[in-house]
Design a protein around this nucleic acid. Structure first.
Lengths: 148, 148
DNA sequence: GCTTGACCTCAAGTTAAGTTGAGCTTGTAG
DNA sequence: CTACAAGCTCAACTTAACTTGAGGTCAAGC
């Protein structure tokens, strides 16, 4: 028992509340890192707990793993996130949240206005026309789970 | 040219802004209906435009196709949606939106409180502990794109 | 009357974020 | 020293909401 700080996957899973398979997955995606024992088992430093915490919070805010990964990578030198880093990220994400909230509000107000107006006629409904014909442009324009 | 009101898939696609393949898909899912010409091609009544409009609005509000389908089915007799029907649906959906907004606000406020506190220590952070360990309970508990 | 463009069907692919399972290895408690 | 829990890898499956493609039909202009 050299370093007391080392954690196994199972321990990280238990303490962080995410499944072992999810941890494997995050590692494959480059969101967390581990080193291996001689027997090829993963060992994590305690910083992984903080990283996982950040990941989960970001996910709840509606940020994709890809974006989270990018944000974590963009931290200078890919080092363990410090409080400073957390400030930057959480501020940015909070702003994103603000925007999302504002959008939903607009949508809700549109709905409210539209209730009872029976105007769902595609050409005239303000709700419908909010989305300025995003179709028929780029041919390969994929849009699953659209954001903006 | 008996009824001037008949539309082809292509026309519906163009006017509604959704792809032909998506219309096929909606039909397979029972969200819209068509009748066929002698040559087996789809023909739609104008009401389909309204239905598609409803579907798109609901999607933007974050409602799944399954739920939209259920809502549309629940309309008495599966008839063409009237203004009354639209009232009911849009009111319900607006309330859902309200809830979603409230949730995001709570999350944002949590983030705001947390910024600078550097408390991301899993055990003590209020943001982290909001989610009262939802792990390790039901074995088959799937949760992709969680709602609540 | 034939060529094009719009349609049709059905199967398979796509993305995100994981989960499940098979088959095999480690590590630890008794 | 021997179970049995916990790990490991890799492939395949899951859901939602469509898209893409292959292979074949319909309709309309010239």
């Amino acid at each position: 028992m050299a370093a007391v700080t080392e954690l196994t996957v199972g321990q990280v899973a238990m303490r962080s509340g995410v499944a072992v398979s999810a941890l494997h997955f995050y590692e494959a995606r480059g969101l967390i890192r581990s080193h291996r024992t001689l027997g090829n088992q993963r060992r994590y430093g305690r910083d992984v707990l903080r990283r996982v915490a950040i990941i989960k919070v970001a996910q709840e805010v509606g940020i994709s793993l890809a974006e989270i990964g990018a944000a974590l990578q963009s931290l200078p030198e890919g080092r363990t996130p410090t409080r400073e880093d957390w400030n930057l990220l959480s501020t940015a994400w909070r702003d994103g949240l603000d925007q999302k909230i504002a959008q939903l509000k607009k949508l809700r107000d549109g709905l409210t206005d539209c209730i009872g107006c029976g105007c769902m006629s595609i050409d005239k409904c303000p709700l419908r026309n909010r989305e300025d014909h995003l179709s028929a442009q780029g041919p390969g324009a994929r849009r699953l789970l659209v954001e903006r």
